[in-house]
Design a protein around this nucleic acid. Structure first.
Lengths: 120, 120
DNA sequence: TAGTTAGATAACATTCTTGCTATGTTGCAG
DNA sequence: CTGCAACATAGCAAGAATGTTATCTAACTA
């Protein structure tokens, strides 16, 4: 079971109720940032968008935090907080392995977004 | 910040390019507020959600500003600014008639949201 | 013309967001 | 154990968001 920080639920999937304005707001807030949208776009294809990783499978666990930091062009803590926003919204899944942390898209949550938008 | 100044277009339809992170950010910012989501939800059915209007056709032009202000429970200027954010994002269309202003959903723009979300 | 009403704008305070630097914390290497 | 690398957290400053009250403008009405 993939478990991490203080996500809204222990399943890693955002508990989206299509008529719950509060959780919809949380999702939209996470998306309301060009940097975070950029991260999500990059994570669509980690292999193409990031340097080759020696240590983790990009297609399986996602891109290494370091690469995201570097490509974002902001300080490491700033990037870290952006990633936390995405993780807290359930849109991205972190994996800690050895000394590194990998991030990948949560395609289930991203698909569920369509329902949320459809309910607006 | 991006350019936008006047309303995105005189047609009332947002110029959404699905791969433009900037305009997607603008849309999500507009949606990243429980109050504004609430307004959009109410405007789905103006007749059901607002008192009867003597002066404008709710189904045609939307709900009167006054009713939205009152139902939101915030001051008139605060509600006015929320509505402006929605209008600027192209999600809501204002109609000025006589002394009143009516607001209705821009269903075209709201439908286009699905594409934006699908492109994330 | 004067008064009233709808609604936008101005000015301001408070809170949230986002950037930074500095410092913890954790795990691997020597 | 000691040092280093990866990354999270703390603390702070600047800008944006959101609320307020006060004011301005436009249109209707007496």
């Amino acid at each position: 079971m993939l478990q991490h920080s203080a996500g809204p639920s222990s399943t890693g999937l955002a508990p989206v109720t299509t008529d719950d304005l509060g959780s919809a707001e949380l999702l939209f807030k996470a998306l309301a940032s060009e940097r975070r949208l950029q991260i999500l776009a990059w994570l669509k294809d980690p292999v193409a968008n990031f340097p080759p990783q020696q240590h983790g499978d990009p297609t399986k666990h996602g891109a290494c935090n370091l690469f995201i930091v570097e490509k974002l062009g902001v300080s490491q803590p700033a990037a870290s907080r952006h990633l936390k926003v995405l993780v807290d919204a359930g849109l991205v899944i972190p994996t800690r392995r050895k000394g590194w942390t990998y991030y990948r898209r949560n395609e289930d949550a991203l698909s569920a977004l369509a329902d949320v938008v459809g309910s607006i």
